[in-house]
C-alpha cells in the first residue's frame, strides 16, 4: 500500500514539477532571445502570468467547430506530454520504465502534435486549417531524423550485446559515448548537432514554425483558441520542451556528478538549460523561417543525411 501512495505523490510531483519547469524555462528562453536582440524582454515569470490570465479569460468555442473535439484534444495534448516524462529516466530509474520503451516514447511524441492538428482542423477557420496542414508537413519532416537519432544508441547497446536493448534504462546506465570506437564518437557528435535541429523542429521554433507563422497566417494553428483551451496548449508546449530535452539527455548526455540529490538535480537543470538555449533560443534568433516546400527537403535531405552518416560511423 505504501509504495502506491509513494508513487501517487511522485506522480503529483512530476506533473506540477514539469509544468512549473516548462514555464520557467520558457520564461528564461524569452528573456535570453530578447537580450540577444538587444531588447529587455518580459519579466522572468511572464509565462505564469500568461497562464493565469488565460485561465480567467473567456474560452470561446468557434461557431462551426465541434465542441467535444475542440476541447478534448486541448487536454489530451497536455496529458500526453506529461505522460512522456513518466517513461524517461531523469535521475535514475524512470517511474514507468519497466513497462514502456523507446518506440513507445517516439509514438507518444506524436500525440501532442496530433492533438494540435486535430484542434486546428476542428476550429473551422481557414487560418487554422492552413496552420494544421503545415504542422502535419512539419511532423512528417522531423519524424525521419528523430527515428534515426533515437535508434543509434539502441544500435550501440545492441552491438555490445546487452539485454532488452530498447528500454531507456539500459541506455541511460551505459553511457553511449563509451560504447563506440573513436569513429563512432565523431558520428555521435554529428548526431548531437542534428538533435538540436530536431528539437527546434519538434517545438516548431522559428526556422520550422511554419504552422504558427504570425506574419503569414496570423497565429496559424491556435488562431481560434482562447481562454483555458489556449492555456492547455501553452502548457503542453512548455512540458514538451522539457520532455524532449530530458529524452536527449538520457540518450546522449547522461554524465552526472555523484553528489546528493540536490546537486544531481541542479546538474540536470543546467543540462536542460544548455540544450534549450542552443536548440530554441540560439537557432530561433539566428535563422529565419523556411518556405514550406524547402522544409521537407531540409528535413529528409540534409538533416537525415547527417543523421545517417552519423549512424554509419557508429556501425
Amino acid at each position: 500500500m505504501f509504495d502506491v501512495v509513494l508513487k501517487f505523490i511522485m506522480m503529483l510531483i512530476v506533473i506540477f514539477g514539469s509544468v512549473f519547469l516548462g514555464l520557467f524555462f520558457k520564461g528564461i528562453d524569452r528573456i535570453l532571445s530578447a537580450k540577444m536582440q538587444r531588447r529587455i524582454g518580459p519579466p522572468l515569470w511572464q509565462p505564469f502570468y500568461d497562464v493565469r490570465k488565460l485561465m480567467i479569460k473567456e474560452s470561446v468555442i468557434p461557431k462551426g467547430s465541434i465542441k467535444w473535439i475542440f476541447e478534448l484534444f486541448a487536454l489530451v495534448s497536455l496529458t500526453a506530454s506529461i505522460l512522456i516524462l513518466f517513461y524517461i529516466p531523469i535521475l535514475g530509474k524512470s517511474i514507468l520504465g519497466n513497462s514502456g520503451d523507446l518506440v513507445l516514447i517516439i509514438y507518444l511524441f506524436i500525440f501532442p502534435g496530433l492533438s494540435l492538428v486535430l484542434g486546428a482542423f476542428s476550429s473551422n477557420s481557414s487560418y487554422s486549417n492552413l496552420g494544421g496542414q503545415r504542422l502535419i508537413i512539419n511532423m512528417l519532416g522531423y519524424e525521419f531524423p528523430l527515428a534515426i537519432i533515437c535508434l543509434t544508441p539502441v544500435w550501440l547497446v545492441y552491438k555490445k550485446g546487452f539485454s532488452n536493448i530498447f528500454s531507456l534504462n539500459t541506455i541511460y546506465e551505459h553511457n553511449v559515448w563509451g560504447l563506440t570506437s573513436p569513429l563512432g564518437i565523431i558520428g555521435l557528435l554529428l548526431e548531437s548537432i542534428v538533435v538540436f535541429f530536431v528539437i527546434a523542429g519538434e517545438l516548431s521554433k522559428t526556422p520550422f514554425d511554419i504552422d504558427t507563422a504570425d506574419s503569414e497566417i496570423a497565429g496559424g494553428v491556435l488562431a481560434e483558441y482562447s481562454g483555458r483551451n489556449l492555456a492547455m496548449f501553452y502548457m503542453a508546449e512548455a512540458v514538451k520542451m522539457i520532455a524532449l530535452a530530458s529524452l536527449f539527455i538520457a540518450l546522449f548526455f547522461p554524465w552526472n556528478i555523484q553528489g546528493n540529490f540536490g546537486i544531481m538535480f541542479l546538474v540536470y537543470l543546467l543540462k536542460i538549460f544548455f540544450i534549450i538555449f542552443i536548440s530554441s533560443t540560439l537557432i530561433k534568433t539566428v535563422t529565419s523561417r523556411f518556405k514550406i516546400s524547402r522544409l521537407t527537403r531540409f528535413y529528409w535531405g540534409y538533416l537525415s543525411l547527417f543523421a545517417i552518416i552519423g549512424f554509419l560511423f557508429t556501425l
Binding site: 518506440v103 486535430l118 482542423f121 476542428s122 519524424e143 527515428a147 535508434l151
Partner: peptide, 24 residues
C-alpha cells in the same frame, strides 16, 4: 525499424486529412 516508424507517421498524416475533410 526506421522505415516502419516513418511509415506509420505517414499513414497517420493521410488519415488525419480524410478525417478532417469528412467529419470536421
Amino acid at each position: 525499424t526506421i522505415i516502419g516508424i516513418l511509415g506509420s507517421i505517414l499513414i497517420l498524416a493521410i488519415l488525419i486529412k480524410i478525417f478532417a475533410i469528412i467529419f470536421l
